[in-house]
């Protein structure tokens, strides 16, 4: 059953690209902001950099906050578009926990993809000096590869956890609706 659900999650992502693209894009942006926050915390430690660090924090946290609101909206749309499908599954005895399990796999895969792409892009932007800050660049040069991978991993897992938590809250709230309402899509 576990592998059936994993396969179904991957098929759903492939077939419902238009719905899942939202999650990819949001994960892409959240990962960039989280990476900036992580790297600012690690590289801009000296008192001289306090102002720059604060500037980065404000920008990154603002974008992060907006992205999380967008994520909640995307999750509501996600359920609204898929209400009938979830209703069909529920009619045939699929439990709410199984639907949460399926949704979590879908979100895990898509947010992992978005976060990987986003983190990779922001590292490229910093290295190519598009997002140029000498402190960053100098700091990055001194940064060991393992530390960089660690920061990337921290960012990616952060994004996946944020997307999973918000989506699961919205999906479980909306699954409280009864089956006829899910089938009608009246949420």
């Amino acid at each position: 059953m576990f592998w059936n659900i994993v396969c179904l999650a991957l098929i759903n992502i492939k077939r419902k690209r238009l719905i899942f693209i939202n999650y990819f894009v949001i994960a892409f942006f959240i990962s960039q902001e989280l990476f900036l926050i992580n790297i600012s915390t690690n590289l801009l430690r000296f008192p001289d950099f306090k102002a720059i660090q604060a500037f980065f924090y404000i920008i990154a946290f603002s974008v992060l906050f907006i992205s999380i609101i967008l994520l909640a909206a995307a999750s509501t749309l996600f359920i609204r578009f898929r209400g009938q499908e979830l209703g069909i599954l529920r009619i045939h005895g699929v439990r709410k926990s199984d639907i949460l399990f399926l949704s979590s796999f879908e979100i895990f895969f898509i947010s992992l993809g978005g976060a990987l792409a986003g983190t990779f892009c922001i590292i490229l932007l910093i290295l190519s000096k598009v997002l140029y800050l000498p402190y960053f660049f100098e700091g990055l040069k001194k940064l060991k590869l393992m530390k960089l991978i660690g920061l990337g991993g921290q960012t990616i897992s952060g994004v996946v956890i944020i997307e999973l938590i918000i989506t699961m809250i919205i999906v479980s709230l909306l699954l409280k609706k009864d089956i006829p309402n899910l089938l009608r899509g009246s949420l």
Binding site: I5, C7, I88
Partner: peptide, 8 residues
């Protein structure tokens, strides 16, 4: 098949 993928 889809609703039955959750069956054991």
């Amino acid at each position: 098949l889809s609703p039955n993928l959750f069956l054991k």
